[in-house]
């Protein structure tokens, strides 16, 4: 499964990178989103995959099971998801404003006008 996920992460990065290199600003925003997914999955996978359940301390126990998923990458990724959403929302509104002002979403055309 790790191999499969590693391949999926590779595809996500490839797709995100390709979109990042487009002249169309909308595609750049899509690319940012894909790169966000890719990075989250990368960190999550780096903490090892586990099918033994979430890191939650059961009733009556004093500690979570040693086999449960690693809580640390989860905490990191959770923060990243939320921040990623903030970035995406801001980028999207910025994009909309820019397109309204410039009349195009072509990055090169914007540069020449600027």
């Amino acid at each position: 499964m790790t191999l499969l996920l590693a391949l999926a992460i590779g595809v996500l990065y490839a797709a995100g990178t390709y979109l990042l290199l487009r002249r169309s600003a909308i595609r750049v925003v899509f690319g940012l989103a894909l790169l966000g997914y890719a990075s989250n999955l990368l960190v999550f996978t780096a903490g090892r995959l586990s099918r033994e359940g979430p890191p939650i301390v059961p009733e009556g126990a004093v500690a979570a099971a040693a086999t449960s998923a690693d809580p640390l990458p989860q905490a990191l990724v959770l923060t990243a998801i939320v921040i990623g959403f903030g970035v995406q929302a801001f980028a999207l509104v910025l994009l909309k404003r820019t397109c309204q002002e410039a009349g195009t979403d072509d990055v090169d055309a914007m540069r020449e006008e600027g």
Binding site: A6, Y13, A14, T17, A46
Partner: peptide, 13 residues
């Protein structure tokens, strides 16, 4: 982009 993806897959592995 494909090369970047391959490198990232390699990184995970």
């Amino acid at each position: 982009a494909g090369a970047v993806g391959a490198v990232m897959t390699g990184l995970v592995l």
